[in-house]
Amino acid sequence: MLLQVNNLHAGYGAKQVIHGVDINVREREIVAVLGHNGAGKSTLMSAIFGAIPVVSGSVFFAGADITYSAPSDKVNAGLGYSPQGGESFRSLSVIDNLTLGGFALKDQSQIPGRIKQVQELFPALYERRNSRAGSLSGGERQMLSLGALLIAAPRLIILDEPSGGLSPIMVDKMYEAIENVAKTLNASVLLVEQEAHHALEIADRAYVLGNGRVTFEGPAKELAESDKLSNLLLGF
């Protein structure tokens, strides 16, 4: 098991959002986490990465307890996290954004080589290498967000709404890229989406979250074909 989340409780200050969630991701597996708006999906991802405080429970990654590890240690262990909205350092150039993706790496000499690999994967990031990230289109920005995280050669990629704000054509391209990346890098993917169909297409397994609890867990195909899907997503 690559990632194992046990009975996790987390939230912002006094307001607890996640109430005892168990989730796991195997090696080379793509897992989708679905749920209606406000179900706690993004909060769960932040908590796994340690960007918001964990109240109780634990997160194991590759066999090690990383619940309270520093973010730089998580990056080095192989955990890559792309927060909601395909965030980037907007006033910095594309190349700087990519370079910063490897900030925590102990061996900084690997960075140029990996940037080259990422640019081969996403040629747009090569063409626009000297542009400010803020000037990129929505699709390019999602590519950059994913690309920057790949510089650290993660074993698990956590993506929070990679299709956010993209046109339907770009969403197709994005999912193609995610599948492609997972295969090329032999990485696992933990995917959060509101829009379920694309995610379920590439995912092996899926969880549905409702009000901070897991309400469904099973193979992606089963969920995609189930008529319960829309009910689950609406939180019934």
């Binding site: 990465f49 730089s72 965030e87 910095l92 925590a104």
Partner: peptide, 20 residues
Amino acid sequence: GRAIRALADNPKLSVVRGVN
């Protein structure tokens, strides 16, 4: 130097990138 600019630009993402 890059990390300083990154922090000024987006502190949350800086943390995610492993900046102390």
